[in-house]
Design a protein around this nucleic acid. Structure first.
Lengths: 341, 341
DNA sequence: CTTTATTCCCAAAGCGCTTTGGAAAATTAT
DNA sequence: ATAATTTTCCAAAGCGCTTTGGGAATAAAG
């Protein structure tokens, strides 16, 4: 079966391709009557404009790109996958698509390709770290982008981020007020921006109460249950063990639960545990035993919002509307309790 | 900075666009000398043909599509993610891209869009189930596809699959020879084709030795550690419990290990456990304690091979070269042992 | 009834590439 | 020397769409 083209449809309707195109694209200079006729015929014949022809004509691809270096496969990280799920769910409600590109030669080469080939309108950046070369490169290439997260110079580009400072500030402060002094953190990898901000939030909350943050109570690692377990064992087996653990992910907290349990510590009594909850289905905070105190902000929502922002950016929204900071609220559950000296 | 076009490059070289295009595309009717000159200039100026223009001209998009219904998000399944990682890793070595599309209205609507818009050369199907409507639809649409897995009428389309019959036949047979009679299976969801074939392999291995397969020893479910745990508890707590468990995934086996351990059963002695090993990094069979006996065939390799096949298919390889069946070898480790009545 | 707006439609010119079908120049054959 | 090839290049015609810049009706205003 021959694919239906604009011209064929036009011939069929005894109209010019111009008019059919304009009718379908909602221009006002076509009568309602013809527009109806055109739309009906288009539906009947299952006509869809050829994507590539349209892209060539408009210079827009309606594609959102996502690149990653294949060695550090983000697909292996449930946090990232959850984000991507939100992104693609939202994008699929629109006429945009998502292009995935992995490369052994790093993202830089992909962006360069994207930019030169024009196969993508915008790229989404995630897992930003402190020395974010990608942003510089994308600016040079003139390839629009949106960042999930922020770097230091975030004022000049669109982003969506959560207030990571407060993500650790809030639970730490709460724990201090519950009487805890020895509060350790299980954080994400230290090159990641969010991890830095979270650590700062933790330090600030402690210092406010006159507690000097102990650097030996800081752990940075991949956010998996396994690592959470290992690091928690380390921390909790010391003689001067922390009485509370603030984790960057519910996965880390899962590991912490296991370690605490093995060491015979009662969670919420002998040891208080909190985490940031990204809404991973594999590690739901409320179903843990005991239920886990968290700051919550789901990655799925973030993915969806990034999709919104991306599309609005492509359609020309001003920068000011494309910089969003979400707050994560503290949800108290029984995994945290008063210090029992 | 203005994007470099073919025409600009041609002007710069005092050649016609035709010649430049043909030089870059390896046609033989351009002298080696000019070809060199063209290639050098193209590199210098970072010229890449505009993807959309090329697509329009050639009618090929160089894009491999992947669709999924957004409610049943395959990204949540580590098995699928591992497959996708392999796929994208391989694809990224070529000039192809991967388009991801999620839809609430099911894959059907996506394929229809893909076909009508011409945004994709081929789609990859995975998680095929018995009543595979997608295949019928794609044939009708004339949209090329390749299947990871098979259905019953697999002779007419390209696929890559592993011999799932033997995936369960081999370990079951081995277990029977070790003296086991009561062998239960923890299989994938029953609507999935691979689960069916595996079950048949299990049944055959039992019947060959005169053991009638017990239907109450069959469990079908999502392949997660949690489900593996629950189902194993169920099975092992019965009075007439199975003495061996054959699992469809190392994740299920992880759950089985936990259940067995909790019930005080020594793995490899009181209870033998085997699994199919998809090569998930989260659940490595050799690192389990005791090391897990498996049939192994990694999903990452499958993803890479599907990428190869997809591209060869697009480039016109005959069907006969595009139907591949892999065997999964049995790797014996100490999680399985002789029946100790 | 003319003039000025409005409404509705379309011819033609691209978008940036590939491909077809020669043509000119350089080689080889006669 | 001319004729027959071979080599090397290019003009022009698309691919299927959007957009520009009118033009022919029709309606409103003078």
């Amino acid at each position: 079966m021959q694919r239906m083209t604009l011209k064929m449809l036009a011939d069929h309707l005894c109209l010019s391709p111009t008019t059919v195109s304009r009718a379908l694209n909602g221009y006002s200079d076509v009568s309602e009557q013809t527009r109806d006729r055109v739309e009906k015929a288009a539906n009947e014949h299952g006509y869809r404009p050829n994507a590539n022809a349209r892209r060539l004509a408009t210079g827009k691809s309606n594609v959102i790109g996502f690149a990653f270096p294949s060695e550090l496969n983000p697909l292996a990280d449930p946090h990232f996958v959850e984000f991507l799920a939100g992104l693609s769910e939202k994008v699929s409600e629109t006429d945009y698509d998502i292009l995935l590109a992995a490369s052994k030669k790093g993202e830089a080469s992909i962006y360069e390709r994207f930019a030169a080939k024009g196969s993508v309108d915008l790229v989404v950046l995630s897992c930003v770290d402190l020395s974010e070369g990608r942003i510089v490169q994308l600016k040079e290439l003139g390839l629009p982008f949106i960042v999930h997260g922020r770097t230091e110079h975030c004022s000049s580009y669109p982003y969506l981020d959560i207030d990571n400072y407060s993500v650790f500030y809030q639970p730490t402060r709460m724990l201090v007020e519950l009487g805890h002094r020895d509060i350790a953190i299980l954080n994400g990898q230290e090159h990641l921006v969010f991890a830095l901000y979270r650590q700062q939030g933790w330090e600030a909350a402690l210092r406010e109460q006159g507690v000097e943050p102990r650097q030996d109570f800081v752990r940075n690692s991949e956010m998996t249950a396994e690592r959470g377990y290992t690091l928690s064992r380390e921390l909790l087996e010391q003689k001067n063990r922390p009485t509370a653990l603030v984790c960057s992910s519910t996965l880390l907290a899962q590991g912490a639960y296991k370690a605490a349990t093995e060491l015979g510590l009662s969670i919420g009594k002998d040891i208080s545990i909190t985490a940031h909850d990204d809404g991973l289905p594999q590690a739901s905070a409320e179903n843990m035993d005991p239920p886990l105190t968290v700051t919550r902000s789901t990655l799925r929502d973030a993915g969806m919002e990034i999709a919104n922002l991306a599309i609005r950016q492509i359609e020309g929204a001003p920068l000011s509307e494309l910089q969003i900071l979400w707050n994560a609220e503290l949800i108290y559950r029984s995994s945290a309790g008063a210090y029992s000296g």
